[in-house]
Design a protein around this nucleic acid. Structure first.
Lengths: 203, 203
DNA sequence: GCCTCATCTGGACAGTGACAAGTTATAAGA
DNA sequence: TCTTATAACTTGTCACTGTCCAGATGAGGC
């Protein structure tokens, strides 16, 4: 399918993927609450009810976008760890936290969708799987740090929840626009500040 | 104004307050993303465009609701502290955290509106004031604990941010439905667990 | 009594999600 | 190759939404 020619075949060819791409762009531009299925369809150049065939309804498309979001989310954490000089367990956990922040700031609307929205189908199995994978990553970081698996040791699971709550709260408040002092910092200062805050949980 | 009689006077009398009351109910029932100005007007028994006169647009009403939310939020924290046996600074901070959770679980939609929504006018001065008052309360808790004011001591401000991030993250994740282990706990167990998590930041 | 103005009504418009019925292309089977 | 079943997409419609605008109403000051 050559996009440069004006040939509009009745069948798009890869509409599902195109809708996801456009959906992500629309989401980033309008936010969750301004999101519109018809807008996405228009963006792709397709009829207003074409998306329904692939995703059912708005919840369906948003759930697919959220699932994709959790994969990018995991990527962001892993990327920071890959770029990490040290192999120290504590440093690796901090790297995950910084990746968490990277993603949050790069894709705020997607982040809000993944964690805050009522408009996504939380039962979507693909979404559940990719969210679970992201959680497992964090659990693994803690396992490396404590020497025991959170899935077997309750104390380690408490550590997971504490670390997760801390990063997530920091990221959420940053997005909410209510953490003024930190918002005005540039990236290096913000990261240094985050390290100080996060140190309370990594020990 | 007697609500039991069917007397519909042209002027409502206290429409603004009635809209806020109904708005809070509608918000709780439908969530932020299902919120509808017309629905609120219908609930009060008034024409569909009556709210505009008092709040401008949807953002305006939601901002007023959020401002009211922050006041209830502060009340919830203070109520827990008032019910606190000990006057220990650490215990008082924990009490604030538990109040934070109380509010979050009692009014999840309002909580999401206050911290997560793009649909509220964040520049609203009343909203800014009540959000600021809630923040000041937390800052005061830390001041009592550390002996220095966060507004003067950077280290204390870091403590504020850490404590705030922790509670907020915990509360948000609880609402997001992605913190399964904690979600299945009953209230006493959840509070005990929260104490363990929060202890990492109170020292 | 009259006038002014904040308050509230009712209608209009463009946009929305969901549904139903129709159209087209593709692939499988004779 | 021809038919046929089915997946992919379109078109039209419905009830609903937020916002704007021109009116109707009534309370309080004069």
């Amino acid at each position: 399918m050559d996009m440069t020619t004006e040939k509009h075949s009745y069948h798009h060819g890869d509409l599902r993927a195109a809708l996801l791409r456009a959906g992500e762009a629309v989401l980033a531009e309008t936010g969750v609450e301004g999101f519109s299925l018809r807008r996405v369809a228009r963006e792709v150049g397709v009829s207003h009810s074409a998306p329904a065939h692939h995703f059912g309804d708005t919840q369906g498309l948003l759930a697919a976008l959220a699932a994709e979001g959790f994969r990018q989310f995991l990527d962001a954490m892993q990327a920071r760890q890959a770029a990490c000089d040290s192999q120290d367990a504590g440093e690796l956990l901090i790297a995950s936290g910084l990746g968490y922040l990277d993603f949050t700031l790069a894709a705020p609307a997607l982040f809000k969708l993944m964690f805050g929205s009522d408009r996504v189908d939380v039962c979507d199995p693909d979404l559940d799987a990719s969210a679970g994978a992201a959680f497992d990553h964090l659990a693994q970081d803690i396992a490396r740090l404590r020497g025991t698996s959170p899935y077997e040791d309750a104390a380690a699971m408490t550590d997971v929840m504490a670390a997760w709550s801390m990063v997530h709260g920091f990221a959420s408040l940053l997005l909410s626009g209510r953490m003024h002092p930190v918002q005005e910092m540039d990236q290096p200062a913000r990261e240094a500040f985050f390290r100080q805050v996060f140190a309370r949980v990594t020990g």
